[in-house]
Each structure stands twice: as structure tokens, then as C-alpha cells.
């Protein structure tokens, strides 16, 4: 299990991560949701041992003992898909997988089986022998994800895996993340798209300016911080918007006064949670 225990990290005067604490649970997709510059990538870099916390501890809490991710050996249990497409474009997709597989100690038939499984996972079996530079952006994104799991890690960290991809490819990546969860992996998923966090994540940590603002399941976050929903109605007098926690009762009351031609209920979501917690929109 990945544990952040009161972790802080500064770059000069900038406090990129500030007293961040959380603990992953078995088999969950854990979302780190925040705007650009919130500290998500810094947290990921500390999780994989690329950065050392200035304060606090990051560890893999094992049943028997704690392991430091900065110890190279402990990195066998984690896989990272960086935000950028970190692949060797001059070699084939299969060779990329083979290379990173070897770095993780895979050899012979074990390696070939994993390469085949990862190509299948990324839906790239037919083009596995093609050089990566010939792949579309979506295919490269899927391969970027597949390389992270070539060694079948316990924990997979996905740093904004849908940046710059079209809606179709985004859906394909969502399906793969769900596959990972169904396969029992722990997944840390950073994003600034609340729709992604809402769809994929079992629990979401909302961070802003490096600080943890709230952490819970999506429904619990919405219940605690989402506030009322909005009922939009159109009548003969025009359109109006009504905050409500009971949309049916509000609609009935409006109809009792005047005929409603059209209505739409907008429930609270993570966007409104973020707005209520920070006073600004997620995409500001």
C-alpha cells in the first residue's frame, strides 16, 4: 500500500506539496484531482522515488515492514505512466515493452508472455512490430500505459494519462484503467478533469496549492461539499434556475404555480465540490 505521511516538498520558495497525507486501500483507483500546478506530479514523483520529500515519509506499507520507494529494488512493485509519452519512437511497440520488461528482470518466455499480454491490453497486437513513430497519438498513449504494467506491478501510477487525446482514445484509456482495477491493481490516477475522477476513481483526494482539501469517495465528497443541485426550468415567463436538494419537490412546487414547459436538473459534482472548497473553478 502506498502511504503519504505528512509529506511536504518545496522548490525554492514554492511549497509544491504541503503536509499531504493519504493511504491507498487494496484494489482501488485513487484519484488525485486538482488544477494544473496543484502538486499532483510532484506527489507522483515522490511516490516513485524520483524526488525525496523535504518533510514526512512516503512508503510502501507492507504487511511486514515499510519500504522506501527510493530504494531501486522496491520499485519492482510500481509502474509509472508519465504525463509525457515516454517511449522510444525509433523502435517497435513490442521492443519498447521488451526493453522495459528486461529492466524489470523479465526474461525468456515470461517476458514474451508479458509483451503479448500488454500489447493485447493496449489493443496493439496487430501493430506491435511497427515502430512507435508510426502510431497515432491514441495508440502511443495506450502503449505508454502498457509499458507501465509490463512487469505486472501491484501499484500503477498514471499521471494525467488522457492529456492531449481525442474522446475516443480517452474512452479506450478509461476502459484500460477499469481493467486494471478489475485485475486487482491499485491505481493512482492524477487528473484535472473532474469527469474522469468521477467516472474512474473509488476515492478522490482534492488538492490545491499542494494541500489536501478533501479526501473521500465521490458521492461522499459531493454530499459533504457539493451543496445543493440546480433545477433549470423554462416557463411562459422565460428561463430560471433554482438551487435545491430535492428537485422533485421543487419542480412540483413550481408547477403548482405555473406550467413548466421544460426542466433540467444539474446535480452537484466534483466541480462544485472544488468550487466550494477553494472558491474557484477547477479549470481556473
Amino acid at each position: 500500500m502506498l502511504v503519504f505521511d505528512h509529506v511536504s516538498k518545496c522548490f525554492g520558495d514554492l511549497r509544491a506539496v504541503d503536509d499531504l497525507s493519504f493511504e491507498l486501500e487494496a484494489g482501488e483507483v485513487f484519484g488525485l484531482l486538482g488544477p494544473n500546478g496543484a502538486g499532483k506530479t510532484t506527489a507522483i514523483n515522490m511516490a516513485v522515488g524520483l524526488l525525496e520529500p523535504d518533510e514526512g515519509v512516503v512508503r510502501f506499507a507492507d504487511e511486514a515492514f515499510d519500504r522506501n520507494p527510493r530504494d531501486a529494488e522496491n520499485r519492482r512493485s510500481l509502474g509509472l505512466a508519465p504525463q509525457s509519452i515516454a517511449l522510444y519512437e525509433q523502435i517497435s511497440g513490442a521492443d519498447n515493452l521488451r526493453f522495459f520488461g528486461r529492466l524489470h528482470g523479465l526474461r525468456g518466455t515470461d517476458l514474451e508472455e508479458r509483451v503479448a499480454a500488454c500489447l493485447d491490453f493496449a489493443d496493439l497486437t496487430d501493430v506491435g512490430k511497427k515502430v512507435v513513430s508510426k502510431y497515432s497519438g491514441g495508440m502511443q498513449r495506450r502503449l505508454n500505459l502498457a509499458v507501465a504494467i509490463i512487469h505486472d506491478p501491484e501499484l500503477v501510477l498514471l499521471d494525467e494519462p488522457t492529456v492531449g487525446v481525442d474522446p475516443q482514445s480517452r474512452n479506450a484509456i478509461f476502459e484500460r484503467v477499469e481493467q486494471l482495477r478489475d485485475g486487482g491493481k491499485q491505481v493512482v490516477y492524477t487528473t484535472h478533469y473532474m469527469e474522469e475522477a468521477q467516472r474512474l476513481c473509488d476515492r478522490v483526494a482534492i488538492i490545491d496549492h499542494g494541500r489536501l482539501m478533501a479526501l473521500d469517495t465521490v458521492p461522499a465528497l459531493i454530499a459533504a461539499h457539493g451543496g445543493p443541485g440546480n433545477l433549470e426550468v423554462r416557463t411562459g415567463d422565460g428561463e430560471s434556475r433554482h438551487e435545491t436538494t430535492d428537485p422533485l419537490a421543487t419542480l412540483a412546487e413550481l408547477q403548482s404555480r405555473q406550467a413548466v414547459d421544460h426542466f433540467q436538473y444539474l446535480p452537484p459534482d466534483l466541480e462544485t465540490v472544488f468550487l466550494n472548497l477553494t472558491g474557484r473553478a477547477l479549470r481556473d
Binding site: 516513485v48 522515488g49 524520483l50 531501486a72 529494488e73 522496491n74 520499485r75 519492482r76 510500481l78 509509472l80 508519465p82 504525463q83 509525457s84 509519452i85 515516454a86 517511449l87 522510444y88 519512437e89 522495459f100 529492466l103 524489470h104 528482470g105 509499458v147
Partner: peptide
């Protein structure tokens, strides 16, 4: 610049 160095540094190698 392409990010593969990061990937190498995350692998179980020193």
C-alpha cells in the same frame, strides 16, 4: 526531454 529518462530512473536499477 522525451521522458524516457524518467522511466529509466523509475525502473529497479540504480
Amino acid at each position: 526531454s522525451r521522458g524516457t529518462l524518467m522511466r529509466l530512473l523509475v525502473a529497479p536499477i540504480t
